[in-house]
């Protein structure tokens, strides 16, 4: 069998949530154990983000998958709740190591089965939130924005440090030379659709996942997962529009206009962003009133290959 390659995604005319059921949710349920075997190592920037949270903080991992960041969070004395759509992945996540029980036993992690757009969290309960390699599975701009809004809504809003922080990672359209992902610009375009200039920039793709033949089966199975590949600046724009929809004043980097914020004004500040190993990432914080810039900690920085 030739190696399957990514193909452009043709948006359905029906409800996008129905298409996502077959191109995202069903696939993850089917490949959960195999997928989990390939996802162990925490990405360094997320490790550093978690290590910078005050000890005993409580966080949300939205789109937690197999829960690999639970282990990282546990190692830094944090508590983290895993949210995912896939029951199969959550069953793996809850049994991840790193949560101390009594007598040296390992305890189970807390998991909640829900969509990325889940709005059921009470406001102000989380000290930090991450969404790593998840939001790119949502197939419309509105659904992606709602996922970011759902990530911001339960964050603690404080008028002084430490402010609640969040970090988001998504797959990038721009790929490094050493990329093992072959998609986006190089996705195979079916015959007859090549004359349009737009196909040069295919941001919505189906990426194959090959599940090797299991015992008792003769053939491997190929599953197609939907991805939206983010271009430069798109993640920042997404966070900004989500923040505006939630009534935040959006502050950029060293923006000092925070000085004229009133006590009850919600603000969101983008602390850092960048490209790393074929992903776009962004780190931000939220708070109330005048921004306290004392004791500023440096945000995480990409190791060498960041750009922008």
């Amino acid at each position: 069998m030739p190696k399957p390659v990514p193909t452009p995604y043709i948006p359905p005319s029906t409800d996008p949530s129905i298409a996502e059921q077959s191109t995202v949710h069903d696939v993850y349920e089917a490949i959960a154990p195999h997928f989990s075997q390939t996802r162990h190592k925490p990405w360094p920037l997320i490790d550093r983000f978690l290590s910078s949270q005050p000890p005993l903080s409580l966080g949300l991992d939205s789109g937690a998958g197999n829960g690999k960041y639970l282990v990282t969070a546990g190692s830094y004395g944090l508590d983290l709740i895993a949210l995912d759509r896939s029951a199969g992945l959550l069953d793996i996540a809850r049994r991840q190591s790193g949560r101390k029980g009594v007598n040296g036993d390992e305890a189970l992690w807390e998991c909640v089965r829900a969509d990325l757009g889940f709005k059921g969290w009470r406001q102000g309960v989380f000290d930090f939130a991450i969404s790593i390699a998840a939001i790119h599975h949502l197939s419309t701009p509105l659904r992606r924005q709602e996922a970011v809004q759902a990530l911001l809504q339960p964050l603690r809003h404080s008028s002084k440090r430490p402010y609640a922080r969040f970090m988001i990672y998504v797959w990038a359209y721009e790929q490094g030379a050493a990329s093992r992902r072959k998609m986006g610009a190089v996705a195979v375009v079916p015959d007859g659709q090549t004359e349009s200039a737009e196909v040069d920039k295919v941001q919505d793709v189906l990426v194959p996942w090959v599940l090797q033949a299991q015992e008792g089966q003769t053939e491997s199975q190929v599953f197609q997962r939907y991805y939206h590949l983010f271009v430069a600046g798109e993640l920042r724009d997404l966070v900004s529009s989500a923040a505006e929809a939630e009534g935040y004043r959006v502050l950029q980097g060293d923006d000092r206009s925070g000085g004229c914020l009133r006590g009850t004004d919600k603000w969101l500040r983008i602390r850092a962003e960048g490209w790393e190993a074929d992903n776009w990432w962004i780190e931000g914080e939220v708070g109330l009133g005048e921004v306290d810039r004392q004791d500023e900690r440096t945000p995480v920085e990409a190791d060498g290959n960041g750009q922008g």
Binding site: S17, R85, D91, R94, V112, R113, D115, F118, G120, E146
Partner: peptide, 16 residues
């Protein structure tokens, strides 16, 4: 079920 609350809703039940 199995210690995991299922908070999923059908699309028409979700608040937007």
């Amino acid at each position: 079920s199995n210690g995991i609350p299922n908070m999923l809703l059908a699309e028409h039940e979700v608040g937007r």
